[in-house]
Design a binder for these strands. Structure first.
Lengths: 118, 118
DNA sequence: AACAATGCATCAGTTTCTTATGTATTATTG
DNA sequence: CAATAATACATAAGAAACTGATGCATTGTT
């Protein structure tokens, strides 16, 4: 199933921030491919959505950029700065709580045994 | 926390369809209050979003309506027809799978013990 | 009497996407 | 080796789904 795209709305920034929190630097095309691969093609980020989002995050002062050349082809690597790391945690927490709320609201709960990390 | 609204986008129809699947009939204002109550004020559906959504679901042929008067004040009750019931299941399943995918992607998993319903 | 809550509705404006288009380089394949 | 696919950036028109404001009327509360 490829999700009807309206569900994705609002989650793109969070996805990008999370990936950048887990990887010290990534470039745009890499992000689209990583998401596709991690979700078994269920979530496909379009470039028309991604690049403006990266520019917006940069304009918000959350990212630093670094250009690298692969032969003659350019790659623009993005990294989180300190604000970006903080924002990433906030956005992931917010989405986690949203998911929890929706799970309850839609009665999707399974019996859960929480095992604390050691 | 009241969720930054962009997360809600795309989930409203599903929420409405789910509530109507669980309750034989509901009216608009009742839906807003039920969601508010069920989520501890975390999700607040605005009337500007809800009424157009109800009209859209009706136009898609998923709902039947029934007007009732409380004194001089009108209430418009909505119910799912057969198509609506089917669509409700589809949308809830889709959102459930989306949530599962996002949970994995954002690394939000907890150790889970699934207990089958009796 | 004033205000809050109940109950419907519409609409301009905003945000966030999709889809199309553009440009260029590099790898693959018949 | 020519055509096509993949890699890699970017922008922009239009669509979708909201928010927030506004409007109207009735009923409950202080």
């Amino acid at each position: 199933m490829i999700f009807s795209t309206e569900l994705l709305k609002g989650t793109l920034k969070t996805i990008v921030l999370k990936l950048l929190a887990d990887n010290s630097k990534m470039y745009g095309y890499e992000i689209t491919q990583r998401v596709k691969e991690l979700t078994g093609d269920k979530i496909q980020i379009t470039e028309g959505a991604l690049y403006p989002t990266l520019h917006a995050l940069e304009a918000e002062g959350l990212l630093t950029t670094e250009v690298e050349y692969m032969g003659k082809r350019v790659r623009k690597y993005y990294s989180l700065n300190e604000s970006g790391k903080a924002r990433s945690k906030e956005k992931v927490s917010e989405l986690a709580e949203f998911i929890e709320t929706m799970t309850f609201l839609l009665d999707l709960k399974k019996k859960t045994l929480n095992v604390l990390p050691q």
